[in-house]
Design a protein around this nucleic acid. Structure first.
Lengths: 236, 236
DNA sequence: GCCCTGAATTGGGTTACCCAGTTGGAGCTT
DNA sequence: AAGCTCCAACTGGGTAACCCAATTCAGGGC
């Protein structure tokens, strides 16, 4: 049962090599979905590394939603496979900052779909949640808007109303990455009023339960923003 | 400089509370993008927790691409904000398994966009990389296909050719999640031949540099698959 | 000004230890 | 035989004191 010892490798932390080992544990069928992993102590002696390393590895998998830890209970597999986090780390480091335009291409695709589905599936309460930030938007001065996040709230409300947790998760991620890239600062005041004007037809289409109109108006919303950004220099 | 001491909170590990603290460090402007964090030892005494906890927190942020650790060098911020990983963990645990249909709604949106962009931007080499799995697909018997991953290869090649690292990352993630949900087993043999038939128009549209045709044919590809799945019982 | 050196510092990792929940079985009751 | 209680063993969470190799960076010599 004792595998070959784990030795440090160049450029790879021990905890990352442990993640690989955990992946093999799963591939070999030794641990299946919703089953319990061997304890920290057991893996410690089996792989010849300290508990700290084991714990760091599982912690990383935990934030990925792959593993659930229950103090006193044990650790459980919550997926069917274990992602290669070391590879993911390398990719993210190489990629570096993502140009806003690329983020928006992704948002356009995913949010147009969400708008269409929201038109079909939104409950009355969700419809209201979409309308609320828009009412705020139209009441405030464009300059004031810049410092709020009602814009993000509008998009998030649609994401929540589309009835698809995957799309909801993706949109939330993309929005926070857009904000991280600081798109707020790229737009002029007149752009912000154009922004709010673009929200109205989306809401109307969702209220009318017209999925294709919702899809079109969301896509047009992003296309308009893209045209505005195209004036400026855009890397990538 | 010494903040209030960090005490355990119900349902929240210490390392998650440290992640919050790190987030505040960034919000307060004490650490900016590409700047160095205080050392493990410094934060240990400042927040009154052990190094292990500090390290687990940073490790979690590292796999998210938010932080880079350099042994001997220090830790560096690689984003403009720190995500709330504890919230993310709760969401993923609540969501649980995602119905295949929901994954495909997301894939349809994001891959149709990728196909359109690939039609515009793919290099000759990338075009070839898209054609290769298709040639294999058409040479093999449908039954044999079931046990290969040429299907996934075709979709990944398009993702890589779209010139957008964000879309590429999203598609890779969604595909592996689809495979984790075991969609291989849901389809009958005749479905697999229909699958490969659906790939051909996509490739043709990309080869013809026709973005809208590429988008349409990719969307139709997923719509056809969805119709096939609709026959069976589908949760959610 | 330039390069070299060496001590201080930094993250990576180990070991030994303590704590509070969870688990599961032994042994009792019904 | 089925169900109960209770306790010992186990599990993850966390601390403390170490050691190591790599990176930094201030000073000194040229």
């Amino acid at each position: 049962m004792r595998d070959e010892a784990l030795l440090p490798a160049p450029g790879l932390r021990l905890s990352e090599r442990v993640i690989e080992r955990i992946g093999r544990l799963v591939e070999a069928g030794e641990v299946r979905r919703d089953a319990r992993f061997p304890s920290e102590r057991a893996l410690e002696t089996r792989w010849g590394v300290s508990r700290l390393v084991i714990r760091e590895a599982f912690r990383a998998l935990e934030v990925q939603g792959v593993v659930e830890s229950r103090p006193g209970g044990g650790r459980f597999l919550r997926a069917d496979r274990v992602p290669d986090l070391a590879r993911l780390r390398r990719i993210r480091l190489e990629t570096g900052r993502v140009p806003l335009l690329r983020l928006w291409e992704a948002r356009e695709a995913v949010e147009a779909q969400a708008a269409a589905l929201a038109a079909l599936r939104a409950t009355p309460a969700q419809r209201d949640a979409i309308a609320r930030p828009l009412r705020l938007t139209e009441a405030l001065a464009p300059e004031a808007l810049r410092h709020t996040n009602v814009n993000a709230e509008f998009h998030l409300a649609i994401a929540r109303a589309c009835g698809n947790p995957v799309l909801e998760e993706l949109i939330g991620d993309l929005i926070s990455r857009s904000q991280a890239e600081g798109f707020r600062h790229l737009l002029e005041v007149e752009d912000w009023s154009a922004l709010q004007a673009g929200h109205r037809p989306i809401l109307d289409a969702i209220a009318a339960r017209d999925p294709e109109a919702a899809r079109r108006s969301m896509a047009e919303h992003f296309a308009a923003l893209r045209r505005r950004l195209d004036r400026d220099d855009l890397p990538g």
